[in-house]
């Protein structure tokens, strides 16, 4: 027997995250699949299927550091093509935000984001960077106001 119960609590939670509520508009046409480069290069990735699982509230298949959602290339082709304004990539990003809330963010994402919160930049500036810049006649890079970021995110 298949489990036919829908998990509305999960969908309600997703609805509250910016970009998450548009999943309700999906009518499973599959336009997103045809244009998706991740689907072309990885047969396990299928945005229509991700949306179906979202509609069914299958949280355990979507949320996790090894979830298929992390194979999305973030190219926005599905957003471009979707006739229902689902903005599938934004739904996928909202699902990723839930991964963070549940503490199951992939290490790469967590580390990279933490560098931004802690230094204000996504790439760390070291003396080699400034030497390369001065060899081109460019000014040294100054620190950015990371305290502002910390204050806002408190």
């Amino acid at each position: 027997m298949s489990d036919k119960k829908l998990d509305f609590d999960f969908r309600e939670r997703l609805n509250k995250i910016s970009g998450g509520s548009h999943h309700n508009y999906c009518y499973q046409c599959g336009s997103c699949v045809a244009i998706c480069p991740a689907a072309r290069f990885n047969e396990d990735f299928n945005p229509r299927d991700i949306l179906l699982k979202t509609l069914l509230g299958k949280k355990e298949e979507l949320i996790g550091e090894n979830s298929i959602i992390w194979k999305c290339t973030n190219c926005y082709s599905c957003y471009e093509r979707c006739p229902q304004d689902v903005r599938p990539i934004e739904v996928i990003i909202a699902l990723k935000n839930i991964c963070r809330e549940d503490g199951v963010l992939p290490e790469t994402v967590d580390k990279f984001s933490e560098t931004i919160s802690q230094t204000g930049r996504s790439v760390v500036v070291n003396p080699t960077v400034n030497r390369r810049r001065s060899s081109l006649g460019l000014p040294e890079l100054q620190n950015v106001p990371v305290d502002d970021i910390k204050k806002m995110l408190e």
């Binding site: 973030n74 990003i93 935000n97 994402v109 984001s113 204000g120 996504s122 950015v144």
Partner: peptide, 24 residues
């Protein structure tokens, strides 16, 4: 101009927390 930080990046940082991404 002085004071710009990372945009922040539209892939990883946005995936972590969209509100924080919007704010920065």
């Amino acid at each position: 101009l002085e004071g710009f930080t990372c945009c922040p990046d539209p892939i990883y940082f946005k995936a972590r927390d969209k509100i924080e991404w919007l704010t920065i």
